[in-house]
Design a protein around this nucleic acid. Sequence first.
DNA 1: CTGTATTATTGACCTGGCTCACTATACAAA
DNA 2: TTTGTATAGTGAGCCAGGTCAATAATACAG
Lengths: 241, 241
Amino acid sequence: MSQVNNTVDEMTMRTPIQCNQCSMQSICVPAGLIPSDVEILDKSSREPHLYNKRSVVFSEGEALNSVFAIKSGSVKCYTIDSNGKQQITSFHMVGDIVGLESLANGNASTYCETLETSMLCEIKLNKLFAQELPKVEGNLMRLMSRRLGNNSKHYLNIVNTSAEQKVVSFLLSISTHMQQHGLSRSEFRLPMTRTDIANYLGLAVETVSRIFTALKEQELIQSKQSILTINDLSALERRVA
Amino acid sequence: MSQVNNTVDEMTMRTPIQCNQCSMQSICVPAGLIPSDVEILDKSSREPHLYNKRSVVFSEGEALNSVFAIKSGSVKCYTIDSNGKQQITSFHMVGDIVGLESLANGNASTYCETLETSMLCEIKLNKLFAQELPKVEGNLMRLMSRRLGNNSKHYLNIVNTSAEQKVVSFLLSISTHMQQHGLSRSEFRLPMTRTDIANYLGLAVETVSRIFTALKEQELIQSKQSILTINDLSALERRVA
DNA sequence: CTGTATTATTGACCTGGCTCACTATACAAA
DNA sequence: TTTGTATAGTGAGCCAGGTCAATAATACAG
């Protein structure tokens, strides 16, 4: 998997990563391109931009012809239903690309809001496609395809599992993401609130809280503030068997 | 939306549709291509193939570098978890394209099995991409992007809603699909069993059955055999508000 | 450093939907 | 047709996880 980068270790989620260490370089900087080709991509399309906590990156329905690469920090994507209730559809963290759904019709299909101070690179699609680099499009398609696959996995986690299994597989999926991006898979920051986790998993906040407590009591995890430590990864994996 | 085709009316799900009426012609036959270009696509890549009920179209893990267009009939995609339990991740019906998740790594990420006698066109991706038709790739990307969006919608239906809302939005999503493919949105065949529906929605079969009964008692729907009739669409829509 | 607001945790109680057990219907093969 | 098998529907009882309520711990602005 060309986008996996295991060389950078022990970075916190807040630390921005360089383009050449960035896990989405297969999109931004298509593998195999020589530096002069890379420079074809308009500088302004790649310059990272700093967002404060709780900034709205884009809003549902707005015209959007870009995707955003998360260089540091994290975001949540959500829709607002007819009753005004927020429903989180995804979290994205360092190394992820956000906004792929908008490709279909040029409109954002969700809101996207930072969970913490974050740095995002806006990648303008028209500029990207204008290069007519088949590798870029191929990589983007593979990325979407992989996302489709991951969505299915998340879906499986949600359907037909107990609340504990939902929470555990949520934690494991973040752990896996961290590892795939060269960070520690056993200790990381959980940038979202319990309420957000509950919303995302379709559980009550109280249930999520109780499950965290139970996992701590069984010494499978620890958590001080927002830092989560996984003490027994394989035991957690057995829980979601 | 170029792939929507409202001109064909009142077809049953078993009736094959012609390429020029096919909703995935934006992929198979990229819009704007003149017939001679269309013929570039290798004949064997597009010839529909007949599958009996319960045929496995592809299996999880197998090498796959094709997508399949459903000309008639329907399929379910599912994975099998470590306990041997089947989990359905999606249903696909006439006009859908199956197998997009495999693009990521050339391997099928689910099983795909026909729910009834079905006709599918296998579209070989290497032959498709060899044409270097930017429109084809663009359309495929838009298709995946739209799929990502639809996945989110399904996800919303699953999270934080009652069993009744899940079933109703399931029915409404099929109804919408039928309409988008030029079929009746108020009367169609439900090719999957109650067990499949329950599995897909993360409910017990008994619950699904009870909800069908309740909806019939309220005269919101009718069902004789596998034919479902929606009597009061807007009432159903209000239920999932 | 302190007051206020937000988030997290815990307890008590209740209910939607699951399980189990059974019956009814549909459909395929003979 | 009959018979066998898969699918659908119904009832009774129970429990996982929701709701409501109160408290504790954090985070942040000034």
